[in-house]
């Protein structure tokens, strides 16, 4: 019973974080775009336009839910549901705080202590492409289909580089569990440099970052929904809540990948110099806040890049994935393995 409650509480924390990411990020994105393009952005609803997302959500809820006559209704309805599944399942293996003790019982702040940790995460994340493919195929529209074809090719290509950079981050740890990855990264080098994977594996970090832009279909790699050539790509025919599920899926995958990046390369919930030994509530909150702060850095980077870079062409995208990122990821893996075996890391 206690375990069940603890697991439920941990999942509730993650759900709250992930579900509140979308409205907050929409606001950040629109204000960020306005800042970069030297205009105002939403500033009418609430202070600083903070409630704009709420108004948008209400608007989307009450819009008419359209399905085209020729669409494949079953897949058409299933696709937006699947869009949020990877984002809402992968968090189970990510820790958000230290091992704490509640009412005399040890609780580790991660939902599933599966031995296969990061591998399970990659597996669940790899299912995300199905929602895009289903959406693009079922709408029975040539732009949607083009978007789906692009999405499937793009996502399997970049998954390789992404997975290899994750593997490289796991090599010195010697475990697939992400809580072990975090505990490996505690401490410092020479007393001031945090013992983060970021420093010895900077190449892997860059590969991970670039590949995660492609995996979430964000600019400069948003070819499956490139509006100047494909109308809106795979979600051209979607409206109302179905559309907003794709929207939420995109923002939640961004959040999950940002959290994963912070866990793998920036030490996760741990920050050298902070005290995690106090009362369990403060320890857990500190851990969560530190992790969120690190993830927020990545989320801001996502926004910054989106409004700064132009879109790639599809052949350039595939060339970058296969001929640059994949060799770099392999080289990084070999380097890390050599450093680990020789005892440097």
């Amino acid at each position: 019973m206690f375990d069940l409650l603890a697991t439920g509480a941990k999942m509730a924390v993650w759900m709250t974080v992930l579900l509140s990411v979308t409205p907050v990020m929409v606001w950040v994105e629109r204000r960020g775009a306005a800042l970069i393009q030297d205009r105002l952005g939403p500033n009418r609803v609430g202070p600083l336009g903070l409630f704009q997302s709420l108004a948008d959500a209400v608007k989307l809820l009450f819009k008419e839910d359209i399905a085209t006559l020729e669409s494949d209704k079953f897949l058409y309805t299933l696709a937006p549901m699947l869009a949020v599944v990877p984002a809402l399942t992968t968090f189970v293996v990510i820790p958000f705080g230290p091992d704490i003790e509640v009412a005399g019982r040890p609780v580790s702040l991660l939902v599933s202590e599966a031995e296969t940790g990061a591998l399970l995460l990659l597996a669940l994340a790899s299912l995300g492409v199905y929602s895009l493919v289903m959406a693009g195929y079922s709408a029975n529209n040539k732009y949607s289909l083009m978007g789906a074809v692009r999405a499937s090719a793009q996502m399997i290509s970049y998954e390789l580089a992404l997975a290899l950079s994750v593997v490289a981050a796991l090599v010195p740890v010697g475990s697939l569990r992400l809580d072990h990855v975090v505990s490996y990264q505690q401490g410092t080098w020479w007393g001031f440099l945090p013992h983060w994977n970021l420093f010895p594996q900077f190449i892997g970090f860059l590969v991970f970052l670039i590949a995660s832009f492609a995996e979430t279909n964000r600019l400069p790699f948003d070819l499956p929904e490139a509006e100047s050539e494909l109308v809106a790509g795979y979600h051209t025919e979607y409206s109302s809540m179905k559309f907003s599920l794709f929207f939420m899926g995109e923002y939640m995958s961004m959040a999950t990948l940002s959290i994963l990046a912070s866990t793998l390369f920036l030490g996760g919930w741990h920050l050298p110099g902070l005290d995690y030994s106090g009362w369990w509530v403060t320890a857990a909150t500190t851990g969560l806040l530190v992790l969120m702060a690190k993830a927020a850095l990545f989320l801001l980077l996502f926004v910054w890049v989106r409004w700064t870079f132009p879109r790639f062409r599809f052949d350039q995208l595939l060339r970058l994935g296969w001929k640059v990122l994949l060799p770099l990821a392999i080289a990084n893996l070999v380097l890390v393995a050599a450093l680990t075996v020789s005892g440097v890391l």
Partner: peptide
């Protein structure tokens, strides 16, 4: 065999079957 289970999802459903879908959509 949890390792195999994760690999099954990662390799089979995450890569091989996406390739099938890609080819099906390409050939239409």
């Amino acid at each position: 065999a949890p390792f195999l289970a994760a690999l099954q999802v990662l390799v089979y459903t995450g890569a091989i079957l996406v390739l099938f879908l890609f080819v099906l959509m390409l050939l239409n």
